[in-house]
Nucleic acid binder design. Structure first.
Length: 697
RNA sequence: GGGCGCGUAGCUCAAGCGGAUAGAGCAUCGGAUUUCUAAUCCGAGGGUUGCAGGUUCGAGUCCUGCCGCGCCUACCA
């Protein structure tokens, strides 16, 4: 279509259009596509847009798959597709064969500190990440799912301090405790206690430093305790996420990045490239620092061996720095002010989190010349094997790393750290990989003051006036993931028990779980990423309106039609698809109202009878398109929106057109086909969101 | 101070690259069912898109300046 237009404009006006903008008209009776290009041309040609639009629509002739172009408004050109032909293709489930780019994609998500129970913030991360994985897989991409485990950082150290210094527990006692099912909850409370304990005496903070140091060293009693704690918590996290159908392929750990000397290798390369330099004065004296990302210029090697000219690439990835292309890339190091320095290696010689992340990303792209050892860690009930990094791995293992691209699902607060990794890659002369590291950034989940009060937290007057309050593991302030899931399941169960007392207890339990997961996953996906979610039980526990259960219910209704009609929806769909031609569908989608399906309803509101049905088919056809949009924009919320709109249109259709009582057989077949197609697309789209549909609701 | 993000209906959020009458859900009010149908549907009210300029055929969207809010800006992760 846009090809036709482009050629026509070139022929007719001698102009080359870079992009043909295609929009959706406000109402589908205008057509399926709208072209506002006449407005652009009006400026260049100094002619009225309406006149240009008429010239184009008259001159362009027939385009395959489209009816004649029409001019509307001040100069819109509207295009109608051949409805019946498109509907036949939808029914047959035909997809345009898209070329799948080669290479493996890595999605890193969750990355919960293994020192306490997972909370709602982690749920948003994991659900966004897992959904993005499913989006990529739907598009045919090969995806590795990794969950980075920071098992040597302060957060784990703090809980170790809690056990060893406050509770004075032995390793054997901790080992026993770690076997209890609520060990993650125990650590949640302990972690909050430790934070208070640090404030009691200055000596207490020394315990933290000492512990942290021992963790990084490894091979001692403290490290062994930390290992058993972090492994036990990690198991709990995997179990919690598995409740939501979220699985991982590989768990790279920070301890291996240290002990397998990933950092040492990275450090040498970073020094050699001039990304890092030694500060010998000022507040960062004795540290290895790099230029803070986004502070004028690029952390670049003095003379990049194979650095590329940064003209065209910046256009494709303009996010980090608006002025990047115009700035001299070479400020001498002495000119970097203290404020613009990012400490990578502390003066005591230990490396910070960003440094380890740089090394990790060099490994991801195969730039490090080192690899992890791999050990089997967790076998999911479905047989899927999850691997973990190890100093000495098993001889046989799958290959991770060497990926084409990586998406890091990490909340917006860490964008500076992520940018540091990106700039370090660029500074190493690997701009091509820097451009393929996407920080999949999203905002945090906070609590509404009301929610916090419900949970029994004491709030200051300031906090009460806020729109939301940030969760804080350090203060033990937040909603635990398992608690929320349990609350959702029991709320759903109450309803299921009431509606379906005839079902077996295990069935009711399963259905309740599916509904709870549907509600939770939809809730986390319906907000766009830059929106802070102000969590509130009332909204999260809702099963009505724009929720997952609303969409699930739509599918259940569609299924009910087929069940009561004695038909199987899947086989019906394929049977009809192979027997029906576009001509059969045409009267119901393009005809006048008199020959189309008339709604047999007593609604006060008149309905068009053809338009609403066509809109439903058109919406159903958009799933694959929407999924591509979600991937291109890294925004899964569009799919949630699409699912809701489709379910909403279906519910209206369901109410408006009784199907099983329809006496005209060909109408009935058409209505059944409509229900079957929408059902198929809803199940498909929900599946990509990780939401299953219960058999009954 | 600097960086990033946000400000749209009473509340929570949408609104492809600047497009046609700014849309949903919740809440409120009024209706619909002896059914494939209520975890639903139909309808009503509710808007100076934070403020002031600018760019243009056209601005919630782009630019400038204000106002308000959040996050980041640690030799934490």
């Amino acid at each position: 279509m846009s090809q036709h237009i482009r050629e026509f404009v070139r022929r007719q006006y001698g102009l080359d259009l870079e992009k043909i903008v295609i929009e959706q008209p406000p109402r589908v009776d205008f057509g399926e596509y709208a072209l506002p290009l006449a407005f652009d041309l009006a400026k260049k040609l100094r002619k009225a847009p309406r006149k240009i639009a008429e010239e184009i629509s008259a001159g362009i002739g027939q385009i395959e798959g489209f009816a004649k172009l029409k001019v509307a408004g001040a100069g819109y050109i509207n295009a109608r597709v051949d409805r019946a032909a498109l509907a036949a293709a939808i029914l047959k489930d035909e997809k345009p064969s898209a070329e799948i780019p080669p290479g493996k994609i890595l999605v890193e998500h969750s990355s919960i500190n293994p020192n306490k129970a997972a909370h709602i913030g982690h749920l948003r991360n994991a659900i966004l990440g897992d959904t993005f994985v499913r989006l990529l897989q739907f598009a045919g991409r090969q995806v590795d799912v990794q969950n980075y485990i920071d098992n040597t950082g302060v957060q784990v150290a703090d809980v170790v301090v809690g056990f060893l210094y406050i509770e004075k527990k032995s390793r054997a006692e901790i080992e026993q405790l770690a076997k209890t099912p609520s060990f993650d909850y125990y650590c949640w409370d302990l972690y909050a206690k430790v934070s208070q304990w640090y404030d009691l005496t200055p000596d207490n903070k020394k315990a933290r430093l000492q512990t942290l140091h021992e963790l990084e060293q490894g091979g001692n009693e403290t490290a062994a305790v930390a290992e058993l704690i972090s492994i036990a918590i990690l198991h709990r996290h995997l179990e919690t996420m598995d409740r939501l159908d979220i699985e991982y392929d590989f768990l790279p750990r920070e301890s291996e990045i240290l002990h397998l000397h990933f950092w040492d290798a990275a450090f040498e390369k970073l020094k050699a490239a001039g990304v890092l330099y030694f500060e010998d004065s000022g507040k960062n004296k004795g540290c290895w620092v790099m230029r803070r990302a986004g502070t004028a210029g690029v952390a670049r090697a003095p003379s990049p061996a194979n650095g590329e000219p940064s003209g065209k690439d910046d256009r494709m990835n303009p996010v980090p720095m608006a002025y990047g292309a115009d700035i001299r890339p070479e400020p001498s190091y002495e000119q970097i002010s203290e404020d613009d320095q990012k400490v990578i290696v502390r003066s005591n010689g230990t490396v910070g989190y960003v440094g380890k992340d740089i090394a990790f990303h060099m490994w991801k792209f195969g730039l490090l010349g080192k690899d992890f050892g791999y050990r089997r860690f967790y076998l999911y009930p479905n047989g899927h094997q999850c691997w973990i990094s190890a100093e000495q791995g098993e001889p046989e293992h799958p290959h991770f790393g060497d990926v084409e691209r990586t998406y890091n699902v990490i909340d917006a607060r860490q964008s500076e750290a992520q940018n540091a990794v990106i700039e370090a890659l660029r500074g190493l002369g690997h701009g091509e990989y820097a451009d393929k590291l996407t920080h999949f950034s999203y905002e945090m989940v906070a609590l509404t003051p009301r929610c916090a009060a419900e949970l029994g937290y004491e709030l200051s007057e300031d906090d009460k006036a806020r729109a939301y309050i940030e969760v804080s593991g350090r203060r033990g302030f937040g909603v635990k993931a398992d608690d929320l899931l349990d609350a959702l399941i029991s709320a759903a169960k109450k309803e299921v028990d009431f509606r379906h007392p005839e079902l077996a207890a295990s069935d009711r339990q399963n259905i309740s779980q599916q509904i709870a997961i549907g509600a939770l996953r939809y809730f986390m996906l319906k907000y766009t990423k830059p929106s802070v979610i102000a969590f509130d039980f009332k909204e999260a526990l809702s099963f009505e309106g724009e929720t997952g259960p609303y969409a699930q219910y739509g599918v259940v209704r569609a299924t009910n039609i087929f069940r009561k009609g004695g038909l199987d929806p899947e086989t019906f769909c394929t049977d009809v698809a192979s027997n029906v031609s576009a001509a059969d569908l045409s009267p119901f989608l393009t005809g006048e109202q008199s020959i189309g399906v008339s709604p047999t309803t007593n609604d006060q509101q008149p309905t068009t009878g053809v338009t609403d049905l066509w809109e439903l088919w058109l919406s159903a056809s958009k799933t694959a398109f929407v999924i591509d949009q979600c991937i291109a924009t890294t925004e899964p919320a569009y799919l949630a929106k699409h699912v809701f709109q489709l379910a909403q249109q279906f519910n209206t259709f369901y109410h408006r057109y009784p199907i099983l009582s329809e006496e005209n057989e060909s109408r009935k077949q058409f209505l059944l086909a409509t229900a079957a197609v929408v059902r198929r697309e809803l199940i498909r789209a929900l599946g990509v969101m990780g939401i299953e549909v219960p058999p009954v609701m």
